[in-house]
Write a protein that binds this DNA or RNA. Structure first.
Length: 567
DNA sequence: GCCCCGTGCGCG
DNA sequence: AAAGCGCGCACGGGGC
């Protein structure tokens, strides 16, 4: 069963059944949308069709309503726009409906949270006849949903694209649920680590913020290590370059990799300073104050936030937490984490995509690189470099040689990424296994690389560089985006399986998702059941996304009370 | 004083 | 060991 729903201001909402013949029933005004949704969820399997999970679902979760399945019209519209070569155009319901009608498309942002959706009803409308705008929005939603279903069915691979739309929508649900649940975070442990590494937290004082003791001391020693004796701000690359030049050391930049090759007394101090300053600035006390409350880190995940289908995050740097700080991620008393990590996901994805027999056999078991080593005179490290270079487009060092071996021994696997690279260089688009489409080249790219038509006009000298850069992007896109397809389907499957597991102590919760890694927080007694669910979800994702293939997609799991112990 | 961009570095 | 791909965030510094 499918139910279309449009939220109103406050607790109200408008619900309408969509029949098997795709015809809408009569709209029903729910005075308390959350409880109406809870009621429907109890009565059996159904899919909610709504404009935007990120807008409606956090409120519902807060009111205690969880849903199993949905169709997020905004996320699906973005997928369809991407397929049509128009990524980034407004994908919210007002824009989608306007496009359907052939009317001028309202600017993006109108469909952003707290946009007009929130104003569909006045508070006084509760129990009254729904406002005309609400009825119109519901009609728009149903029309847009119908059109989207038709567009999905018209895809070259409708089953796959439909799976993508479902997984993208499920991802939206998981993202909202994970943001609401939060990642267990021990602020005390974090604070002690900061104090140990940086010194005591400086007391608030007027003027520019003070450095913690350890950083201040390092900064002073760095300044003293330069010949001029003048103050040097170690946070300023420009000042550092000048100070080094004054001492006869010329560097292109002050990044770690460059500094490591430089002989100067300030360098070791600088490297130490940079590492600690980074921790202080990005994940220090103010981060703790801002993002951690009640023992949870509450990040905001943005499902579909990356062109490849990976998630992005907003605020708190949820997807860049330094490994060091995993020490502060500690399960509640009596609870534990099941940390699941897809092992060597990208080479396995390439193996399944390319259908290269020998390569796929190598990806059927435990260690892909070890299985490929025999082709590289038994050297596992060489096999790894060859694979990474093929997927990322690197060719420096000995990578060129290793790529030639790869091309000879595994022509189909090599050919798959080479073809993607060529497509990109020629300005074409490429798609992931489920049909997520990369953006077309920008106008600037076309103008740099385009032939002028006049043989006397010199080709832009940057043309080759721009073409190759786009080739690397599309080469990587087919692998990264297909890996994201798999991970999203696995996440959706795990989410569904977890919903069926619970104990007196409570049910398992997804609390973290980072590209190919998932963390479930659960009562200790449920760890085995959760571990089994992870394995099932991973295997099912392999079948759903890639069909019949010898390639396996194992997830390593660790049952730990502290995230830092997972590896 | 505010905004934007480049630099640098954390994660996969 | 670093590089090739994808991101978010903090900071300095220039432009307004």
């Amino acid at each position: 069963m499918r139910l279309a729903v449009v939220p109103g201001a406050g607790p109200v909402g408008l619900i309408c059944r969509i029949g098997d013949d795709s015809r809408p029933g009569a709209p029903v005004l729910a005075a308390d949308l959350a409880s109406a949704i809870r009621e429907h969820e109890r009565s059996g399997a159904l899919r909610w069709v709504w404009p935007c999970t990120a807008e409606i679902y956090p409120r519902l979760l807060q009111a205690g309503a969880r849903v199993q399945r949905c169709h997020d019209a905004g996320l699906v519209e973005a997928l369809l726009l991407g397929r049509a070569g128009r990524p980034g155009e407004p994908a919210g319901l007002p824009a989608a409906a306007a496009r359907l009608r052939g009317a001028p498309v309202p600017a993006a942002g109108l469909s952003a949270p707290a946009g007009p959706q929130a104003a569909l009803f006045d508070a006084g409308d509760i129990g009254a006849v729904p406002a005309a705008t609400a009825a119109a929005a519901l009609a728009d939603l149903i029309a847009v949903y119908g059109a989207q279903q038709e567009q999905i069915a018209a895809d070259r691979h409708p089953v796959r694209f439909s799976l993508l739309a479902g997984a993208e929508s499920a991802g939206g649900l998981a993202a909202a649920e994970m943001s609401a649940a939060g990642l267990p975070w021990d602020a005390h442990v974090h604070n002690e680590m900061l104090t140990e590494l940086l010194g005591r937290r400086p007391a608030p004082a007027p003027g520019p913020p003070l450095r913690p003791a350890r950083l201040a001391e390092l900064a002073a020693r760095i300044a003293a290590a330069f010949g001029s004796g003048r103050p040097v701000n170690p946070d300023s690359p420009a000042q550092l370059v000048r100070a080094l030049a004054a001492d006869g050391v010329r560097v292109q930049s002050t990044r770690q990799s460059v500094l490591r090759g430089v002989q100067h007394p300030a360098v070791p101090l600088l490297l130490e300073y940079k590492e600690l300053a980074r921790l202080h600035a990005a994940y220090g006390w103010s981060w703790l104050d801002t993002w951690v409350s009640d023992g949870r880190f509450h990040p905001e995940y943005v499902a579909g936030g990356v062109v490849s289908g990976r998630w992005a995050s907003r605020g708190g740097g949820a997807l860049q937490i330094p490994k060091l700080l995993r020490r502060a991620v500690i399960a509640d008393p009596g609870w534990t984490f099941v940390v699941a990590d897809a092992a060597q996901l990208e080479p396995r994805v390439l193996a399944a995509l390319a259908g290269d027999g020998a390569f796929a056999q190598a990806a059927a078991g435990g260690d892909v690189y070890a299985a490929l080593a025999s082709a590289f005179s038994g050297d596992r490290a060489k096999a790894k470099v060859a694979l990474l270079s093929a997927m990322y487009g690197g060719a420096g060092g000995e990578a060129g040689q290793l790529l030639a071996v790869l091309r000879q021994r595994f022509p189909q696997a090599s050919g798959y990424v080479e073809a993607a690279a060529r497509a990109g260089e020629e300005g074409r688009v490429v798609r992931s296994v489920l049909g997520r489409t990369c953006p077309p080249p920008s106008a600037a790219w076309r103008s740099v690389t385009g032939e002028s038509g006049d043989p006397d006009v010199q080709r832009d000298p940057g043309a080759g560089r721009a073409a190759r850069a786009r080739g690397r992007f599309t080469r990587n896109f087919v692998v990264q985006a297909s890996a994201a397809d798999w991970a999203l389907v696995a996440l959706a499957g795990l989410r569904q399986r977890l919903a069926a597991i619970s104990s007196a102590a409570g049910g398992p919760q997804l609390v973290f998702f980072q590209h190919d890694e998932m963390i479930v927080h659960c009562p200790a007694g449920l760890a085995d059941a959760v571990t089994a669910a992870v394995a099932e979800a991973a295997a099912a994702a392999g079948r759903l996304v890639f069909g019949a293939t010898p390639v396996s997609f194992p997830m390593t799991t660790a049952v730990v009370r502290c995230y830092a112990d997972a590896k």
